[in-house]
Amino acid sequence: MTNPIITLDHVAFDYGRKPVLRDVDLTVQPGEIIGLVGPNGAGKTTLLNLIQGILPDAAGITIFGGQPGNPTAKAATGSMLQGNLKLPRVRVSELISLIGAQYPHALPTNEVLTLTNLTAQANQSINTLSGGQLRRVTFACAIVHQPQLLFLDEPTVGMDAQARQEFWALIERMRTRHVTVIITSHYLEEIQHVADRIAILTQGRFAYLGSWDELQDAHNGGQISFTAPLAPTAFAHLPGVSAVTATTDHITLTSTDTDLTVQSLVPFFSDLHHFTVTRQSLETIYLDLLKEDDQNEEISQPAKV
C-alpha cells in the first residue's frame, strides 16, 4: 500500500471558546477523490485551512510526510479558494502567468487557458468576467502547476449547468492523472457522482466517512410509485412502508426498506402500472443524518434550567 497523502489523527480545533473540530480522523490515499460535505459552520473550510497550514496549531495532521505548509506540500498542492481572485486592472492571462511563475514546473499559460476553456477571455480584464468565468480563472490558478493534490472549496458556485458539466469533466481528467482531490460543495448530487468517498462533517466531526454505495446500502430507504385501481390504504401496512401519498393518478409509498416493500408488492403486480423505485439520494440521506446528529447532540447536552 502506498503512503497516504494526508493523515488526520484526532484533530481538534477551536476559535477561542468556540470548538469547530472535535476528534477528526481521516486518511487520504493518492488518487482518491474525497467529497467533504456539511452544513454552513460545520468546519469544512477550517479543516481545509488546517491541512494547508493556513491556520496554526495543526497538531495531528500530516501532509506529504510532513507538517502542513511544508515545502513539498506547497509545491505539490493546488488550492481553489472559496472566493474569486477578482482583481481590477488585471487580465486573465496575466494572473495565471503570475501564479504559474511561483512554481518550478508550471504549464504554459496558453495551455492552462485552453484546458479551462478561457482562451477567449485571455486578454479580458478579470473584473469584467461573469461569476462562472471567475470560478474558472480561480481553478486555472489552482492547476497551473499540475498539482498532485487539489483542494476545491465550493468550486462550481456561480457556474451555469453547462459550465458545471465541463468542470466535472475536467475533474474526471484529473482522476485519470491520479491527482488526489478534496472537494467541498453544497451541490450534493455532483459530489455523489464524482467522489470515491464522502465525508459528512457535522458538529465538528464526521457523521459518515465512506463510499456512496456503502452509505446507500446502509440507508435502504426510498420511494415506490405506481398507478393502481386499488385504494391507497391497501398498501399502508406493507413491510417498510412509512407513508402513503396518493394523487389522482399515482400512489407513492415512502419506504425505509425498498427491497422488503417491493417483495411484499409481488401479489399486487398484475394491478400495478407505471412502476418506479427511487432510492434515497445523497441529499435526503445527508439531511436524515444531520437530523439524527442534531437529536443526539440534544440528548448528550442536558437542558439548561
Binding site: L81, G83, Q102
Partner: peptide, 17 residues
C-alpha cells in the same frame, strides 16, 4: 486591502515562494 480580501495574498502564501 483588496488583495487580501479577494485572496491574492493567501494564494501567494500557499505557493513555494
Amino acid at each position: 486591502q483588496h488583495d487580501r480580501q479577494v485572496g491574492l495574498v493567501q494564494t501567494l502564501r500557499l505557493t513555494p515562494n
